[in-house]
Every structure is written in C-alpha cells, then in structure tokens.
C-alpha cells in the first residue's frame, strides 16, 4: 500500500465533526480491501470486522472527523458568521482560504481579516467574534445557497514537503486511519485476536463517535490511534515527541499498563523506532471513551507525531506512520494479552 497516496486521498475528503460522510466513504473504500464486512452507520462511523476464531477481540480506532467551522448566521451583505467545530486556533484564521460545503457544491471563501486601523492594538489576537467568511456572494444568494449549519473547511490541497513529509489539513487523524489500514495489510491473517476497526466520528467535539463504536464492537482490548505533538519551534520539547523517531506509545493512569509495556517490548524486540508519551490522566483521544465502554476495555494509545496540530498546515512524516503500523501489526500477531 502506498501510504503517501492513501493519506493524500483521505486528507482530500471532507469530514468536519458531525458531517463526516465524504471522508467516511473514502475510508470505507480502503478498509474494504482488508476486511470483508465494512459498513458506515447513520452517524458516519465506519466499522469493519475480521474474525479468526480467537479468544479475544481487539478494537483498532482512529477518528475520521476533522476540525472546521459551522455557519450560524448570514449577514445582509452575504458575510457568513461561523463557529469553530473542535479546537480551532483563532490566531491563524485571518485571510485563510476556506471551502463552504454547501448542498449545491463547494463555495470558495476567505476568512475576513481586520486591518490595523480598526484592530485594537497588536497585542490582542484576532477575536473570533470579529471574523466572517467572505464568499463574494450577495446576501440573497448566500442565504439561498448556504443553509445555517453548513460546514466549512480549510482549503489547502495536501502537498509534499522535503523528504517524506506531507502537509495538509486533517492529518489529525487521517494519519491514524492510514496507520490502521497499513497495520491490517501487514498482519494479513496472522492476527492473534479477532479484529474490529472503527473510524469514529465526532472525536473533536467530545469523542461521541467512539462511545458508539466501542459499545458496538464489544471488545476486550483496544488501541486508539491518533496523532500527538511533534517538537517544533515554540513547543516545549520535554512535552513533545520527535518527528521521524517513530510511534509514540502512550503511558497514563487511564491506559492499560500491560498493553503499554507489551508495545514497548515488541518495539524493542522487532527494532521498530518508538518513543513514549507520558500523560497524567485522560489522553484527549478516543481512548478516554473506549476505556470505559460497557464494562471496561483495556486500552492503549499509539500516536503518530505531527507538527502544527489543528492548523491547515499540519505536517507528518510517512516513516512515522509506517513504524506505527508495524508496531500495531506486531501487537496483533503477538496476541498474548
């Protein structure tokens, strides 16, 4: 499987929380290559199952949604008032190009930027209340074509940087989706567990999808595959992983110690580059919801380090996806938990 190509195709699909179907359909297409029964439910969650008659079932989860915007008002002049969906960095919004995903097709727009003569000194960052989307449409046309509740996304085609790095919006968490697909390819029929896969919706707005998918999966253990912070200028390097240094294995009071240890052991044994990510409580990923699903699930996190999370210019290294996938594949093959 061509990781780069798959990631680019997945990142090109839209899936703002609560409206994930375009992205879910692309993910379903890929998942169907590795699993026989793949479905998308009414929310946009993608499910796949693969049974080998093993004792235990593992859930591999990545979230399919991405941050974005939701239109909540249209002015008389046709400007669109929006609210963030998920944790959007307001400071970088001015003059961003966006697509408004209207029922009649994508509409290009630009987020307004308040010129210095009316902004209140440069110490203050942009206030999201002052920003609108400018589509160039007049009020009537805008209101006719853009019903309230329409989503908008950053408009930026995935693009290759130097080496094996890719920049795009939605790498959080399409990188996780690709990691799982690649792990399934690597493990083939050698899994020591029955496998369920969920590409869950609405993670960015409170892990709602994972609550549903983990209930339905009825699994014994789970790995949540998400992205985490790679060190970059302005970050605290003690709190970040490093790009290109492999999968970030989560260690936290809310995660299964046994699984974290097994993952580290398998990485060492198979010479797979890895790093640890220590968290002091909940992880901010689907693992938080999955861990307390039904009567409880042993859960681990394997995260792909990315830079500039929740921006239109997220950056990932393909090698980190490959190494995360290798690690998960080894865990599946091992099957000793």
């Amino acid at each position: 499987m061509d990781i780069k190509k798959t990631l680019i195709e997945l990142c090109s699909a839209y899936g703002v929380s609560g409206d994930e179907f375009s992205a879910s359909d692309v993910a379903k297409k890929y998942l169907s290559k590795y699993m026989t029964k793949v479905t998308v439910d009414g929310f946009g969650n993608v499910y796949g199952d693969m049974n080998f008659g093993r004792k235990k079932r593992i859930l591999l989860d990545a979230h399919i949604d991405q941050i974005g915007f939701i239109i909540n008002y249209v002015t008389e002049d046709g400007f669109l008032k929006f609210s963030p969906v998920g944790g959007v960095d307001t400071r970088l919004l001015p003059a961003q190009k966006v697509y408004v995903i209207s029922p009649n097709g994508d509409i290009s727009g630009v987020i307004t930027s308040v010129p210095p003569h009316i902004s209140k000194g440069d110490e203050k960052a942009t206030n999201i209340d002052d920003l609108y989307i400018d589509t160039g449409l007049d009020g009537d046309t805008a209101k006719r074509n853009i019903p309230l509740g329409t989503r908008a996304v950053f408009c930026a085609e995935p693009k290759e940087l130097l080496g094996d790095r890719i920049t795009s919006p939605a790498i959080d968490d399409r990188a996780g989706v690709v990691t799982i697909l690649r792990a399934l390819e690597l493990v083939g029929k050698d899994s020591g567990y029955d496998i369920s896969v969920a590409f869950s919706c609405m993670e960015e707005t409170g892990e709602s999808g994972a609550k549903m998918t983990s209930y339905n999966a009825e699994c014994d253990l789970a790995i949540a595959v998400d992205v985490s912070f790679a060190n970059a200028k302005g970050e605290d390097k003690n709190k970040c992983g490093e790009m290109g240094k492999g999968a970030m294995i989560g260690i936290s009071p809310t995660l299964s110690k046994e699984m974290s240890k097994a993952l580290i052991k398998l990485a060492e044994k198979n010479n797979i580059p890895y790093q640890t990510e220590v968290m002091s409580g909940e992880t901010g990923t689907d693992a938080d919801a999955i861990g307390v699903s039904r009567s409880g699930v042993m859960t681990a996190t394997v995260s792909v380090p990315i830079k500039y999370m929740h921006t239109p210019v997220e950056v990932v290294s393909v090698s980190d996806i490959e190494n995360s996938a290798r690690l998960i594949a080894e865990f599946l093959k091992d099957g000793t938990i």
């Binding site: 290759e160 970059a232 970050e235 999370m309 929740h310 921006t311």
Partner: peptide, 13 residues
Amino acid sequence: RISGVVGSAAIHN
C-alpha cells in the same frame, strides 16, 4: 521555490 508552511506551537500547548 521550495514549498513550506508557517508553523507555531499547537494551540493546545
């Protein structure tokens, strides 16, 4: 004309 992006610390941090 090397492609690049302007980054900063993630908003979470």
